[in-house]
Write a protein that binds this DNA or RNA. Sequence first.
DNA 1: AATCATTTTATGGGATTTTATGGTTTAATT
DNA 2: AATTAAACCATAAAATCCCATAAAATGATT
Lengths: 148, 148
Amino acid sequence: MSLFLSSYENRLDTKGRISVPAPFRASVASEKFAGVVLYRSFTHNCIEGLSMSRMEQLAAATDKMGVFDSELDDLSAMLFADARPLAFDVTGRIVIPTELLKHAGITDRAIFVGRGNSFQIWNPDAFRAAQEKSLNNLRATRPNLTIV
Amino acid sequence: MSLFLSSYENRLDTKGRISVPAPFRASVASEKFAGVVLYRSFTHNCIEGLSMSRMEQLAAATDKMGVFDSELDDLSAMLFADARPLAFDVTGRIVIPTELLKHAGITDRAIFVGRGNSFQIWNPDAFRAAQEKSLNNLRATRPNLTIV
DNA sequence: AATCATTTTATGGGATTTTATGGTTTAATT
DNA sequence: AATTAAACCATAAAATCCCATAAAATGATT
């Protein structure tokens, strides 16, 4: 699976369909499941997105961490229960379930945001506000950028 | 991946295409992705450039910190959301997105500047001015570079 | 060192394909 | 029958491919 990079703003049509950006579709093109997995972000008012193979990776990781870890139990309970697998239609569109749209405050437009091994879907205005904040945080705290 | 060294000034055509200098293309020639990844510099009015493998290194680093760790959140949010994967065309050109050009003040000419494991793209005049300034700083502070 | 031949590189423009998006029709579910 | 969901068709804009050429770099041969 290749990385999810960059950001793409698309619009929802009257039926709630929205095109997953072609580069994101390309990122999962080699997988068995032609689609993505979405769930509500625990930390932001946005939707988190993954490939199915990444979801399987997470399942394997939680397995390894032990069955009796209660924190992890909560996490995986949320994650797997909430996760919605959504297949692309022929033109590469999905219909995002209403609960997810509501959680992200999305109505007629949405922005797909690359996050490396995952991505997010935001209300465009909310995203830009959040980015502004992140940039200010970065400039204030100047974390270690040497890796870049 | 071999180092990005030296500087090369090229011109943008009417479609916004610009040749990536052949030596820079050679630096990423062995990689799966035949192209580069660009994003807006956090600190300067220029564009930063990386190879895709370097980008994947960054993704792996954020993975190691835990998928739900928030420490690197701001940095990776900025970086991956802004990063544009740009494939070379047959003759080795890319089209630099308008936001990036705007951020760097580039119109019809641009200079590719080697930075070792990465590179930058500048408005040629802005770059020369910045270099002049850097040189003066160096002369004043005479920093020491420790090897290893 | 100088000439010439060959290859590579940077740049230009037209043709083709992909993509996002809208609408219509058919099938399924209640 | 009514509503919902899925499949199908259409299109304008944008991105990409393809071909052509001049300049520059390289290498070979004097």
